[in-house]
Design a protein around this nucleic acid. Structure first.
Length: 438
RNA sequence: GCCCGGGUAGCUCAGCCUGGUUAGAGCGCCGGACUGUGGAUCCGGAGGCCCCGGGUUCAAAUCCCGGCCCGGGCCCCA
């Protein structure tokens, strides 16, 4: 029976060549940066047993957002990976012979059962880089520097902010010093600061029934702004007795002294982040212009791996969201979809009589390393040209009676209009010239 | 899960408000003219359960109800 809806499932997408070429290009730029920082690639299965993911992400993710199902043959419960961090933790736990600190990158799809909207999909790529085995601020700083260089490689050298906070600051100030008990709704409220402003947060906190004095203290803290050093100094003055606060201040201070472009950094007490496993510094990268949510997020999770092996192993990392980068880049005009094929040369067969000669020319170009197409539909030369034009193939190689007789090829650059006839011996070299010069 | 906006040719859409002959356009596709380098022009053609189901009506792409699907927003997140 013919199904009525032949589109991919909700929130899932097909990628035609123009988009795929862009995605591959961006991924290769990222891999380049990751490798420059000495990170090695790994991969893990898309499926995990449910109990591997259970209890790692928080209530909402667990109840609603993780794709989860029973397999009728083995009766085990499975889940599609929700991020690349928990699979990394499991990987480390099962590969205890790796050299520490272990620096790995992982570029792969993850799945979340969300309602799709702009910049949000049910299947999307994360580009993760993590350092396992170092508890020190230099590891966190390396992650931030890598994120900065990654954005640069992707075409974003300005126009974004790295928001930085620390779970220990949140814990030390809000839970220990202010003594707030039902803390999750409070975090949820202050996390909205960017969106709803200080008065909006005040209203949210009032709704929670907090004492007026407490509310003012909270608002006071989340509105501290300035350079990283100023903010850290102010915070440490206020809460010098709290061990969590002073540990975080020392950590963030050393960290920001190692960051290559510290003007991009903003210590932001309203940054919370959802994932339960973070224990230290947390970060989020937001673009100034398209309001699309964060394009990258990460932090330190020193206890996650320990959940699998008992012994705790420190780790820190960042995750760059490829689709949001692409959506934003297209909107900002940083990227385009003009490249529709890898083909560099289209061989145009003027009449089918010349096909065998044209076939030889095609092979010559291919052996010379040039991506080449020849008409496989036996259409007339005008059609061949039109199809080449629709794919934006930059160079045409005409094969007609004259060329066959004289053992030549006529090369034509669509972009610069240059045209000349060359001997077969020179065709690869001259074609390459045309491709690089025009 | 909640709130908006959509669903008509392969694609982008018009028509719907104010129901009424054979449902349109652009692009694409197929064929032809043009007969060697032109992102040209002209001629012809194919292609539609107008999302699905029900209701109102003499009559529904058009009005009403329900469902499904898509897009945007909320929540949350990359």
């Amino acid at each position: 029976m013919k199904p009525r809806n032949i589109r991919p499932p909700r929130g899932f997408r097909d990628f035609p060549p123009d988009i795929m070429l862009l995605r591959k290009e961006l991924i290769s730029r990222l891999e380049n940066v990751f490798q420059r920082y000495g990170f090695d690639p790994i991969d893990t299965p898309v499926l995990e047993y449910w109990e591997i993911l259970a209890g790692k992400y928080g209530e909402e993710a667990e109840n609603r957002l993780i794709w989860r199902f029973k397999d009728p043959w083995s009766k085990r419960e499975y889940a599609l990976r929700y991020d690349l961090t928990v699979p990394l933790a499991r990987f480390v736990a099962t590969n205890r012979n790796i050299v520490m600190p272990f620096k790995r990158y992982h570029i792969a799809p993850v799945w979340r059962h969300e309602e799709p909207q702009k910049g949000r999909y049910r299947e999307f790529y994360q580009c993760d880089a993590d350092i396992v085995g170092s508890p020190h601020p230099e590891a966190d700083a390396e992650i931030v520097n890598l994120a900065i260089d990654s954005l640069k490689a992707l075409g974003f050298s300005t126009g974004y902010t790295i928001r930085l906070n620390d779970r220990r600051l949140l814990k030390g100030i809000f839970e220990e010093e202010l003594g707030l008990s039902n803390i999750v709704p409070v975090y949820r409220a202050i996390d909205k600061l960017d969106k709803i402003g200080i008065d909006g947060v005040r209203k949210e906190l009032e709704k929670l029934g907090l004492a007026q004095g407490t509310i003012e203290k909270i608002l006071d803290i989340i509105s501290i702004s300035g350079s990283p050093n100023d903010i850290l100094e102010e915070i440490s003055k206020k809460y010098s007795n709290n061990s969590n606060v002073s540990a975080a201040v020392a950590h963030l201070g050393e960290m920001s002294s190692l960051i290559i472009e510290s003007d991009k950094i903003k210590i932001d007490m309203s940054l919370v982040r959802g994932l339960d496993y973070y224990t230290g510094p947390i970060l989020e990268i937001v673009l100034d212009k398209p309001r699309i949510g964060s394009v990258a997020g990460g932090g330190r999770y020193d206890n996650l791996i320990g959940l699998f092996i008992g012994e705790s192993i420190p780790a820190t990392g960042v995750s760059i969201g490829l689709e949001r980068i692409i959506d934003a880049g297209l909107e900002l005009g940083i990227y385009d979809l003009n490249r529709r094929t890898v083909t560099e040369v289209q061989v145009i067969v003027m009449k089918h009589d010349f096909f065998h000669y044209a076939w030889k020319v095609t092979d010559l170009l291919r052996q010379g390393g040039i991506s080449t197409r020849i008409d496989l539909g036996r259409v007339n030369e005008r059609k061949q040209r039109k199809k080449a034009q629709r794919l934006s193939i930059p160079v045409l190689a005409f094969i007609g009676g004259r060329e066959v007789e004289s053992g030549t090829v006529t090369l034509y650059s669509v972009k610069c209009g240059e045209r000349f006839t060359v001997k077969l011996d020179d065709v690869v070299e001259r074609a390459r010239e045309l491709l690089s010069n025009c």
